[in-house]
């Protein structure tokens, strides 16, 4: 077992480095950034890379496991886009959208990262507030999500790019992106959260911004 893991480690580390070379090439970094990238290999290996995690991440997530988390996802989406003078993510049905897109439109690795993020979040709630996430009050929930927001990204832009490419977007970034997308494409989001012009009929190139003007929902 030990030997197998070692072999796998060497192989994966090699792939890992090749990936980074390619990534670096793709984003056209200069020499200094390139050297930073070499450092990134070390950093990433220590902070987020292990053979076991890698193997795990290549297994698919059963859709049922995500649907089981629907209430939590709905709650998280509402924390990101809450009801204000316009509807929030929950009313707009964003949880359904997030699960649909996560299951059907994301690579297995990204699915897994998202799912384990949810698990981490639940564990964090138990460890720090000694209750289920859904039983926490709004302020506690916000603190929990804030923790994941704070640890979502590396401060280094290149490190982030490499990490996203290798392991997928962080749990929080993905959650936020899908929440925004789901909300801004939903009926309530489009027609109430934003401004929607189904058939404009004409184009007015320069007009004064109206008080409380919302963004156009579509381009």
């Amino acid at each position: 077992m030990c030997i197998i893991v070692k072999k796998a480690e060497i192989f994966l580390l090699f792939t890992h480095i090749t990936y980074i070379y390619r990534t670096l090439d793709a984003i056209r970094v200069n020499r200094r950034a390139y050297l930073k990238g070499i450092l990134a290999v070390g950093t990433l290996s220590i902070t987020s890379f292990s053979v076991f995690k890698w193997v795990d991440l290549n297994k698919s997530v059963a859709p049922g496991k995500l649907w089981e988390k629907r209430a939590i996802i709905a709650e998280l989406a509402e924390l990101i886009i809450p009801e204000t003078d316009t509807p929030g993510a929950k009313a707009a049905g964003v949880d359904h959208y997030i699960i649909d897109v996560m299951i059907s439109c994301n690579p297995v690795r990204q699915q897994h990262k998202f799912f384990s993020g949810l698990q981490d979040l639940e564990k964090y709630a138990l460890d720090n507030f000694e209750k289920d996430f859904l039983k926490c009050n709004t302020n506690e929930k916000r603190q929990i999500l804030q923790h994941f927001a704070d640890h979502a990204e590396y401060s280094n832009r290149i490190l982030n790019k490499i990490n996203n490419k290798l392991f997928g977007q962080s749990f929080f970034s993905k959650l936020k992106n899908l929440t925004v997308e789901g909300y801004c494409l939903s009926r309530l989001g489009v027609t109430e959260g934003l401004a929607y012009d189904y058939i404009p009929g004409k184009f007015e190139a320069c007009i004064p911004l109206q008080p409380n003007q919302k963004s156009w929902a579509t381009k």
Binding site: I80, I81, R142, A149, G193, K214, S215
Partner: peptide
């Protein structure tokens, strides 16, 4: 979406007004 940090009502307000 990728340039706005945080979450909540301020985030929503910025997200839904012209940049």
């Amino acid at each position: 979406v990728n340039g706005l940090s945080g979450f909540g009502s301020d985030f929503k307000a910025q997200l839904t007004t012209p940049g």
